[in-house]
Design a protein around this nucleic acid. Sequence first.
DNA 1: GCTATTTTTAGACTATCGGTATAAAATACT
DNA 2: AGTATTTTATACCGATAGTCTAAAAATAGC
Lengths: 298, 298
Amino acid sequence: MNAKKKQIIDAAHRLFIEKGFALTSIQDILDEAGIAKGTFYNYFASKNECLMAILEFVKEEGDQKRKELAHGKLKDNEKVLVAQIAIRMNINRKHSIMAVFESVSVSDDTDLKTLLKNQHIEELKWLSTRITEVFRFENRRYSLDHAVMLLGMVHHLMHVWKLGTSKEIASEEVIQFALNRLKPIIEEQMQSKEVFFQNDWLPMSIDPSVTDSTEMKKKVLVKLERLDKKVGKMERIDQKKSDYIKFLQDELQAEWPRTFLLESVLMSLSHVFEQSDYEHEVNQLSKMVWQLMEQIEA
Amino acid sequence: MNAKKKQIIDAAHRLFIEKGFALTSIQDILDEAGIAKGTFYNYFASKNECLMAILEFVKEEGDQKRKELAHGKLKDNEKVLVAQIAIRMNINRKHSIMAVFESVSVSDDTDLKTLLKNQHIEELKWLSTRITEVFRFENRRYSLDHAVMLLGMVHHLMHVWKLGTSKEIASEEVIQFALNRLKPIIEEQMQSKEVFFQNDWLPMSIDPSVTDSTEMKKKVLVKLERLDKKVGKMERIDQKKSDYIKFLQDELQAEWPRTFLLESVLMSLSHVFEQSDYEHEVNQLSKMVWQLMEQIEA
DNA sequence: GCTATTTTTAGACTATCGGTATAAAATACT
DNA sequence: AGTATTTTATACCGATAGTCTAAAAATAGC
């Protein structure tokens, strides 16, 4: 990642932790990072996009630590599970990110909402497989239920704890308590066979909230426009990228976009953006176009 | 309640449901209600205060319905409990209030935060006594734990449901499922005797976050100022109210405020504001002064 | 080391928002 | 009818997110 970008992210990160997202103005970030406004908007299209970069960074960090924790331990080690869950909680607490997580739900930024949603989905998927690993494997049919309930309990216990005191409590303590409560649930549910979520409940789609294909197309075009702008600005003249993007824009606006062409160009686009700062963005774009085409053809 | 005030509240309410709190501007409310800006600020000191009025209104509505539901039924009727919990959930869902509930946590409006906190506390207290009523009375030592975990499960189950589909689900279904999961927890916890929250865990204080008495005093004075302004504007000349407020302002700024005088005047103030629109506000003020005096004397 | 290119800067600018202020018009009270 | 109160329209303020530009600074390629 570009050094300047990292510098901005770090500054914003510090401020978000210190004062919270909503109460941190762009100007604050500029002052903290010691940069000009133009520089900021050179790297992020908005404050939200900056937050998204931070969230992604933080998630990576957490995933890494979780891996390290598991290293050399048996998969069914309960203490490891507790510690792993605690990592995310501690990071979230340290970074005051739970607040952000919820505060954005009233924002209209679809990208940010999607990011949060997807991170949440991934967390649940991870936890539900971990639960099958730690507990009796036969509970796998209910493991998503268990993951959801466990997280719900943990978060709410923590929340209520904060209602009553400003003292800190070790996340592990909360998690262990909730986990102990989960155990009888697991036993009971395997008896009663009552199930709430099938294990394939969680979607992997990028943005299921948009079902209208014209809306979707508009969003894709906006994304392309943004990407084009960035490419025009940032890269040493790379006509190819620009050409690809232009083509996609034209083709998408045609009455019957040719799927095979889109597919091909998207592949190429992903390829030329590999390992760049925009890899993620391009991948997302690609998925969105796919989804769009499916809708149009249906 | 004043008709005009109700008119504004209704308009704002509709808009908050439709577009969410953050995305509804004051101007939107003015247009929807067909009033001028001045009128709005005649009744509410801020957008947040308007939201607070709505939240209080909605809570009342819910409490009422819960009472009606319980009427004539036995206290240990499980179905009644489920329906009662569902009421608040449905209202929250209908009013998109969960979003608000969380979104405000990043705001710096202490009043609003306090209101939400207090409503949350009340909900938990209510639920924990209801749980002892419905289930074995011997579980009362753990009933707060159970209330917290039940709500945590319910909310998270609902949240994850929405991640996977846009289909509606009956709140009762979610609640019943979570309640069935709670049962083995209750049994197990009475065995293991592991407890997380003592039943006196929840505070009743108005704003425990402010521990600094000078900060507190400042807040009280601001509140008095606001109240004074309103009184000056709204009521037909009522010198008494104004006098009381002025006195409180002076006395509080004295080096050693005389507790007995404050007490007396606060009583009178509560009395003259009884059944007015500001009853709640005055009561809160009163509690804050009490808390303040305790701190000062300690 | 020089030049061409890119990045960064400072700051002016727009539009929106929450909130204040005020004078005139409408309404209510007596 | 005359006075007090509420409501309106509108101008205004300061803060904010975001755009744009022209010039300075940094950096790359040769």
